[in-house]
Write a protein that binds this DNA or RNA. Structure first.
Lengths: 236, 236
DNA sequence: CGATGCGTTGATAACTTTCAAATTTAGTGG
DNA sequence: CCACTAAATTTGAAAGTTATCAACGCATCG
């Protein structure tokens, strides 16, 4: 997999703090330093660049690495037997992914646009957790958070198209806290595969939301939330 | 799109765990056995009985306990704003649940039928993990497994009704490894709320599967898998 | 330009839900 | 043990939602 040149950068200070749940005082007892994982990954990792639409890892490959998004964005997905693609998650700036797999990756990961990713050997990652309880705790917290995010998403998938799209927009707005204008890093097809809908339904629903004055669509990739409470209501 | 059950009020509360024997247990080092967690829980926990349809814990209650199913079965679920119920998971004999929550339970748990459950104080549970790395690893592994199970379920939720029901039957067959005859511990409504379908669709799909000679339905709660490969194919 | 990729819009078909009713199963008291 | 009532499940017909198929608009790029 790691076919490209690993490049160590020293622009690492520019990396924003990860959104690691610092409050989670989970199984592993009282650590206080919630940022230690990201910090340590920087020291252990190699920086990799992935052009748009290139694979970071593939399904059923040995899960030897753990990743952190430094720039750009990443999608993980699975191709089903009939060719449909289900997108599992979008990883944005600062997110850590690939952590909860132990043997082989159960899904594939691709850069959605030109991306820089910090790559850390799983063995080092695990050794670290074994040595430092506060890091182990942080990893557990991250995994728990991923579990909760997934629970939320399951609730999403049983809803109607409109509810799914509205929830999706609110989720993205929350993760990219930039006022009310969101720059979507993913295509309509990505959104459709994330929400379990077709591209046409996503498109239609977005225009319906615009007609209903809940959002504005200056360009197809840019969404302005005009009426959050309406959106929240629609995301029921 | 009121697809699911409206809120049910018939659930009564069982006696809350008043006496939980949380004693220090001297598991230091050495415990490499994969069953050490269950073993230790037995020593630390209190046995509780919950009649059918009684609540074990409720949404937004402080998440003070971790549980293990000794007999019977348990469902966790969430009621959505419009009254729909989404079942998050079914827990059967031996399963541990409530582990990944740290502050408040994000969902409720009920006994699906008369159940005995081992209740362990979360604080003891956590202390144990902090003391014994092998237990901590076991807990992490269980959480990862839950995460993978949920990923599998997400894939399920974007599929057609027939695919969902077929997958569900195969999942249950796998978890209750008793040849080809499964005794379902849950009602049609439970299945519907688990799969994000209506009770009518579940029922129709089951009869369709029976007509297609993939399964047999001696009673509504008993399912015999007649043709696993057909089922696997249908679960796409 | 003319191709190509992405997004939108329209018409129709397929699937699932909703509403309604029949049928079976389970629980209770005589 | 049987009869009766309530609950759960199945079945049917109609309505609603989303997918599918097809065409069009609109950018970018050679």
């Amino acid at each position: 997999m790691l076919t490209q040149t690993a490049v160590r950068t020293d622009t690492m200070r520019a990396i924003p703090p990860s959104r690691v749940a610092a409050q989670a005082c989970g199984v592993f007892g009282g650590a206080t330093e919630a940022q230690s994982l990201s910090q340590t990954m920087l020291l252990m990792g190699a920086m990799m660049s992935y052009p748009r639409n290139t694979e970071i890892f593939g399904e059923d490959e040995p899960a030897d690495y753990v990743y952190r998004v430094i720039s750009g964005s990443v999608r993980t997905y699975k191709i089903m037997s009939d060719g449909r693609r289900q997108i599992d998650a979008f990883y944005l700036l600062g997110d850590i992914f690939g952590m909860q797999f132990d043997d082989e990756y159960p899904l594939s990961a691709e850069a959605m646009n030109d991306a820089k990713v910090l790559v850390v050997k799983r063995s080092s990652f695990n050794a670290l957790a074994g040595r430092d309880m506060s890091i182990a705790q942080e990893i557990f917290a991250l995994t728990s958070r991923e579990l909760r995010r997934m629970q939320k998403r399951m609730l999403l998938l049983i809803k109607s198209a409109q509810e799914r799209v509205a929830s999706f927009l609110l989720e993205m707005a929350e993760r990219v806290p930039s006022s009310n204008a969101i720059e979507l890093p993913m295509s309509r097809q990505d959104i459709a595969d994330y929400l379990g809908l077709t591209i046409e339904t996503v498109s239609r629903t977005l225009t319906a939301l615009e007609t209903a004055a809940a959002i504005e669509l200056p360009t197809s990739r840019r969404v302005v939330l005009r009426n959050r409470s309406a959106l929240t209501r629609l995301s029921a």
